[in-house]
Simulated assay, not measured.
Amino acid sequence: MARCVRGLEPVVSTEILRTGSACVESVGHREVGFRGAVGRLRTADDVFLAAARGDDVGRRKDGLGALARLARGVDLDGLVRERAALGGPRGFAGVEVSASFLGRRNFNRFDVEDAVGRVLAERAGVPYHARRDGTAPPDGYAGWRVTLDGTRASVLLRVGERPAHRRAYKVESVPGTLHPPVAAAMAQLADVRPGHRVVDPCCGAGTLLIEAAGQGASLEGFDLDAGALRAAARNAGAAPVRVRRGDAGALPVDDRSVDRVLCNPPWGVQVGARGRLADRPARLWREIARVLAPDGRAVVLVPDEGLVRAVASGLVPVFAQRLSLFGGPVTVAALELRTSGARRRS
């Protein structure tokens, strides 16, 4: 089971199928069920083994007893073997549980976590770490997940030692930094190829460019914030990413010279615009249209009204998917030049 940002389910499904070693069996709210070995999924928040399934327990607090019984039926030995075969840790140093549910309930997530976690820890003979006080679990504790979707209750065991969305390269962050699986999804939608010139006009901590690395492309980022440029350089490490000071409203880039643009612009939700975008945000679309090669593509996170401005600047959406991000809806859009004969694909 792969868990993901809401709206990325189709992208995660595609990444799973592209491995050639797994098949998708179900697609639900923020999750994709599959069978087979897939290695690391860059567009998923996390990957789990299905430990137990049952009916959703409903709204009443006395339904928590059914979750405890579900936990008692988990095949711990079988899960340990399966997780180890997939490259995960062997055994449990401890148990920690994260829960989520849809709809109103007469209990909270911590009640769910405790009902399942205490049973699992007792059965495994290891400590249980409760999340009620907000402290992080000790290293080495097995990560479990409980979901209630209104129809089904699922108990899941994380395959890896740490969540898949955490990246070892992400040693520095800045306000508005992009969630790595979303950046990976955008890089995949861009279809970056060897020899491409890829530009991020508002690179921030460099997440988009780093996620696009490994394809043999030239990767360049621009930002007006010196702290963001330092963060991007440190995060990139040995990756072939070059960052420098530049205004997204007047990029120091020749016309029609960029094959791919990747961008999470400062729309004022997490970070305010600076430079020439501060008073005229639409300048970004004109710059993208100016630098993009005739057969190029831009993949950008935009609010709904942003697409209208993009079209007015000569860009055509060929893909659009709404995500739940930054506490609200946002659209990831792939755009091509109108003169390239682009046609909407979804």
Rank of each mutant, 00 (worst) to 15 (best):
P181I: 04
G63E: 09
D295Q: 10
N108L: 01
A142Q: 14
P281Q: 01
V318T: 15
A232I: 14
S154R: 14
L208I: 09
S218K: 14
R83L: 08
A289L: 03
L157A: 10
A52Q: 15
A250N: 14
Q321V: 13
A124P: 04
P240N: 08
S13R: 13
A205Y: 02
G341L: 09
R72K: 13
A248K: 10
R256N: 14
A187F: 07
R53I: 06
P181V: 03
E305S: 11
G268Y: 12
C203K: 06
G341K: 09
D254G: 11
A228P: 08
A130C: 12
W144D: 10
G91N: 01
E25T: 15
G28A: 03
R35H: 08
H179S: 02
A278H: 02
N108M: 02
R286V: 01
V271M: 13
E161N: 05
A248P: 13
T339G: 05
L224I: 11
T19F: 06
D223S: 05
D139T: 13
V243E: 09
L156P: 06
V308S: 13
V24I: 03
L262V: 10
Q270P: 00
D45Y: 01
V198I: 00
G206R: 01
L189T: 00
V112Y: 05
T177A: 15
R280N: 14
P201K: 07
V47D: 07
V316W: 15
S324W: 15
G268F: 14
I16S: 01
A213G: 12
L8I: 04
G195Q: 12
R18G: 02
L67A: 02
L262C: 11
V253I: 12
V316I: 11
L148P: 01
P89Q: 12
L229T: 00
F92T: 09
R35Q: 09
N108Q: 07
F107R: 04
